[in-house]
Simulated scan of single mutants.
Amino acid sequence: MTTALNLAPITGPSAWRGDELSQTDEWIYHLSDAEQTELVTVGTRFVKNNPDLRTVTAAEYPLPVCTDLIAECARQMDSGRGFVLVRGLRTEEYGDTVSGAIFFLMGLHLGVPMKQNQAGDVLDHVIATSNKTLDDPTALPSRVRDRLPFHSDSSDVVALMCLRAAKDGGASSLVSGTTIYNEILRRRPDLAPLLFEPWHWDWYRQDHDAPARFYTSPICSYVDGIFSTYAGSQMIFSAQDYPEVPRLTDEQIELLHLYDEIAQEPGLALDMDFQPGDVQWLLNYAALHSRTGYVDFPEPERRRHLLRLWLRRDVGRPLVSGFGKHTVTAHGDDAGTPLVPGGRFEIAEAVVPNFEWGN
């Protein structure tokens, strides 16, 4: 692992800037007609067969025409810029169920879907279920309309499919964790070593069903020449609400504020306006994500609605011990905390958000 004595800038495709990427569309994979046709055909069969989302496998639903699509998504996440946007699906034409099936199938070919809550759901939703704001300690980030701070999710891969866009706002924002680290190292080399030390994170605010109120993880990992990031200062600050969590030092607080300031500097992030049918694949160790605040349409059925997958994926990436959130278990794994009632394990019901959860 890198120490304070040999910290150095990180180079490579993961060290990108949004103002440079936004001048091209190299980060967008445009589906061919043949790929669209295969995804719809196999997705429709998936809906008809109605398999259990917890146990179905990619081998049961091959996508031979989409080999290049799957390979490019994997390459960009594993060793490229860390993300890719797939565009070309006509979700408004297919309907939510077939669209959700297509999304889930792509996920099966890129990793192992993970449970996202204690009900065991492997397909979750980003949709406002109330008018709460993030100032409310009972609010869940995925269920409010506020702008979100940049953060990492609780998986190797996080993926989003846009079913419906907001009336105004709601752009998806990504920023390179590598670029942020390089900037901290350049501006404050005295603070940079703290990124590799353990920090305490608020688990309850991320998942009200979490088995503990907090967990520990470094913000950065560097093993065998591979740099990884896990960030989200809001969850570090809110963990200070728990008396058993050690108090942050002045240097730690200064570093967290600097991290957020750099992430929000003009030109660093890439903002993308989600269009219905867009699918974003993101490696949590390479880039952080956020969204701008948004205004919904008044009709509930027209609300901004994204489907979300968390994937466990063997990307061949060495990490320091205890790096990242101590996650819930993977798809098909019966270990871990017992489930609570209410899980949705058939695609037709899984694509319907639970408006009672997160209120």
Rank of each mutant, 00 (worst) to 15 (best):
M1Q: 12
T3I: 10
T3R: 03
A4T: 09
L7H: 04
L7K: 06
A8L: 12
T11A: 14
W16N: 10
R17G: 00
L31M: 09
E35V: 14
E35K: 12
T44F: 00
R45G: 03
K48V: 13
N49I: 04
N50I: 01
P51N: 02
D52L: 05
L53W: 14
T55Y: 10
P64Y: 06
I70E: 00
I70G: 02
A71L: 08
C73G: 02
A74V: 01
R75W: 06
V84Q: 08
V86Q: 01
V86P: 04
R90M: 03
D96Q: 05
D96T: 10
S99N: 02
S99R: 04
G100E: 02
F104I: 07
G107C: 10
G107N: 08
M114N: 11
M114I: 07
A119G: 10
G120R: 12
G120D: 12
D121I: 08
I127R: 11
S130C: 07
K132Q: 11
T133R: 09
L134P: 03
L134N: 00
L140C: 08
P141F: 09
R143N: 14
D146H: 01
R147P: 01
F150I: 04
D153F: 08
S154K: 11
D156K: 01
V158P: 05
L163F: 12
A165C: 00
S172E: 00
L174G: 03
G177P: 13
G177Q: 04
I180L: 13
Y181W: 01
N182C: 12
L191I: 05
L194G: 08
L195D: 05
F196P: 11
F196Y: 15
H200I: 15
W201Y: 15
R205T: 15
H208P: 12
H208Q: 12
Y215A: 03
Y215L: 01
T216G: 09
P218C: 09
I219M: 15
C220N: 06
D224F: 04
S228N: 10
G232K: 01
S233T: 15
S233Y: 09
Q234D: 07
D241Y: 07
P243W: 05
V245H: 14
R247I: 13
R247V: 15
Q252L: 07
I262H: 01
Q264A: 00
A269P: 06
D273A: 09
G277A: 03
G277F: 06
Y285W: 07
A287H: 07
A287G: 04
H289V: 12
S290E: 01
T292S: 10
D296W: 09
R302E: 11
R302W: 10
H305K: 06
L307A: 06
R313C: 01
R313L: 00
V315K: 00
G316H: 05
P318R: 02
G324E: 04
H326Q: 15
P338T: 11
G342F: 06
R344D: 09
E346P: 11
I347L: 05
A348W: 05
A350C: 05
V352N: 03
P353T: 04
F355V: 13
